[in-house]
Amino acid sequence: MNWMHWVRPRLWTLLAMGTLLVALVFTFLSRRAFDHQQYLDLSLFDGADRFEQVLKSPPAFAAYRTASGAQELLGYVAFGAGPGYAGSIATRTLISPAGHIIAAEVLEHTETPGYIRAVLASDFLRRLRGKELADAFMVGQDLDGVTKATISSRGIAQGVRQASHAMGREEFGLTIPEPKIPVNIGLKEIVLTALLLLTVIGTQLRIPRLRWFVQIGSILFVGFWFNSTISLANVGGLLLGFVPPWRQNLWWYIWVLGIPLFTLVRGQSINCTWLCPFGATQELLAKVGGGQIRCRPEYEKRLRRVRFGLAWLAMLLVFLVGSPGVAGYEPFGTLFGFQGLVVHWITLVVILVGALFVRRLWCSFLCPVGVMDELTWKLGRRIRGLLKGRLDGGETEPKAGGTPV
């Protein structure tokens, strides 16, 4: 039968896509709203025996002690949420009857776990204690963010600000103006735009020498300075519908949306070979170690399928757990952000030592972002081929291969 001829060579791809689609649908159907009730605990306030809701949105409650007959206000508990790097972060803020922050906590998140670990390991949450409800709670103004986890710190601050300002206005009668969130155009946005423009010029005008310049810039800035390598967490977050507010995350729109969009429109890979700082690091290591160890093409072709298996498993986990950060197994954050568990560090050492002898070990056999990149440029070429075929009035087969320039 004709359709069997079409299905057979694509069986694994169809199965992989089908299972991911089912998992994605399952995630959306089973998605539950944040349930603050489970985090309302009387033991939060010493001697409290009753909560009374004082705000609906964001939810906030007053805690009372009524055992002695008289009603004594012990404090407030208010919930909030803010966007992180790859997902949302839910917070709980305890407020004293006088209107000071007693404590702030992270309750749930779909953020990249490494960044949350970095924030929790710092004294960021402790620095929120004692602040007043009308304070700005803005990283860079009255709060210092956590180095290499600035976006997560900003998300937590936003959750606390949301709760505090709502309580200040509604319960304490304070006049708190809406915070003016400036459009963030800083060094990060400028450098990322410059690197992207240089890449577009280099690939479109075919100037391969620019590639080394971009790669060095990428290692220094995208890697070590900003720690903003595109990761599976970004892709997973996007597929789960996470889009950060643009004013403070302009870089995200330039980088995480701009690169795949260019790849799709031009049918050409630019992330892996030009802009990825981890790929560039491996290329430098191969210059040092020779990078001469390789497989015969038939073995290499088979081994390269490992990337697809890992990317499929990771995406499946992202969808089933509903958290994009959980499956980001890339060692990018460990190298550039100096964050990670023991297993992350061991993986990084294995990959970097391996990359001395096997050229781009990670990219060739393991990188899930490479898989996404390949699927995107292939889709782009197919669309271009179809459009060209339609314009020419005939079928045009897209050109195979993934040459960067």
């Binding site: 081994l303 959980v326 197994y329 993986t347 294995v350 391996g354 393991l366």
Partner: peptide, 30 residues
């Protein structure tokens, strides 16, 4: 299989084991 191919296979296998351990650790820690 040549010696160089064994090295590549070994490195990839080791990395896959570490990646699976990472995924297990992160999901378990949720």
């Amino acid at each position: 299989m040549k010696g160089s191919e064994r090295i590549v296979f070994g490195l990839v296998l080791l990395a896959v084991v570490l990646i699976l351990t990472t995924l297990y650790t992160e999901v378990k820690g949720m």
